[in-house]
Computed example of a mutant assay.
Amino acid sequence: MKVWFTGTGAGRPNKHRNVTGAALQLPEPHCAWWLFDAGEATQHQLMKLPLKLSKLEKIFITHLHGDHLYGLPGLLSTRSFDGGVSRLDLYGPIGLKKYIETIFQLTGTTLDYELVIHELAENASDEVVYNGPGFKVEAKPLLHRVSCFGYRITESDAPGRLLTDKLQQLGIEAGPLYGRLKRGETVTLADGRVVTPASVTDGIVPGRIVTVLGDTSPCANALLLARGADLLIHEATFAAGMEAKAHEFGHSTTSEAALAAREAGAKRLLMTHFSGRYSNEELVNLEGEARMVFPNSAAALDLGCYEILRKVSGEERGCPE
Rank of each mutant, 00 (worst) to 15 (best):
257 A>R: 09
157 D>R: 05
216 T>H: 12
54 S>M: 04
255 S>A: 14
185 E>A: 05
191 D>V: 12
222 A>M: 15
250 G>A: 09
321 E>Y: 08
3 V>W: 02
265 G>Q: 10
95 G>R: 11
84 G>V: 05
27 P>F: 01
275 S>Q: 05
101 E>T: 09
249 F>K: 10
9 G>W: 00
310 R>N: 02
305 C>H: 04
152 R>E: 08
147 S>L: 11
312 V>R: 12
60 F>D: 02
3 V>G: 03
90 L>S: 01
11 G>T: 00
291 R>T: 00
204 I>S: 05
47 M>G: 13
48 K>P: 03
6 T>M: 00
154 T>W: 03
139 A>D: 06
290 A>S: 01
165 D>C: 03
209 I>C: 10
191 D>Q: 05
7 G>V: 01
298 A>F: 01
58 K>T: 00
111 L>W: 06
263 E>T: 07
308 I>W: 04
7 G>E: 03
222 A>E: 15
168 Q>P: 01
221 N>D: 15
163 L>H: 06
239 A>I: 09
126 D>A: 08
11 G>E: 10
34 W>K: 04
148 C>P: 06
185 E>G: 08
298 A>E: 14
70 Y>M: 12
134 G>W: 08
99 Y>H: 12
121 A>E: 15
178 Y>C: 08
151 Y>H: 05
49 L>T: 03
51 L>M: 09
99 Y>D: 05
13 P>F: 00
1 M>Y: 02
62 T>G: 13
39 G>N: 02
133 P>N: 09
272 T>I: 13
214 G>H: 01
47 M>H: 11
226 A>Y: 10
194 V>T: 14
82 D>V: 01
258 A>Q: 05
268 R>Y: 06
157 D>S: 14
136 K>G: 07
275 S>G: 12
154 T>Q: 14
17 R>Y: 03
301 L>A: 12
65 H>S: 13
128 V>F: 02
303 L>H: 11
315 E>V: 06
146 V>L: 12
144 H>F: 14
284 V>E: 04
237 T>V: 14
21 G>Y: 04
177 L>H: 00
196 T>C: 13
159 P>N: 10
177 L>F: 11
2 K>I: 01
231 L>C: 04
48 K>Y: 13
222 A>V: 15
148 C>V: 12
250 G>F: 08
141 P>C: 05
305 C>G: 13
231 L>W: 04
140 K>T: 07
258 A>K: 03
218 P>Q: 12
139 A>G: 02
264 A>Y: 05
14 N>P: 05
310 R>G: 00
168 Q>Y: 10
30 H>S: 06
234 H>F: 15
311 K>T: 09
70 Y>C: 03
287 E>P: 07
16 H>M: 07
266 A>E: 11
150 G>S: 07
233 I>S: 05
61 I>L: 13
174 A>Q: 13
22 A>I: 09
117 I>G: 00
253 T>M: 08
188 T>S: 11
249 F>N: 14
145 R>F: 11
80 S>I: 04
242 M>P: 09
285 N>F: 07
300 A>M: 01
245 K>E: 15
182 K>Y: 09
132 G>D: 15
276 G>R: 08
56 L>V: 00
34 W>D: 10
264 A>E: 11
123 N>E: 15
60 F>L: 04
272 T>R: 14
239 A>S: 15
36 F>S: 07
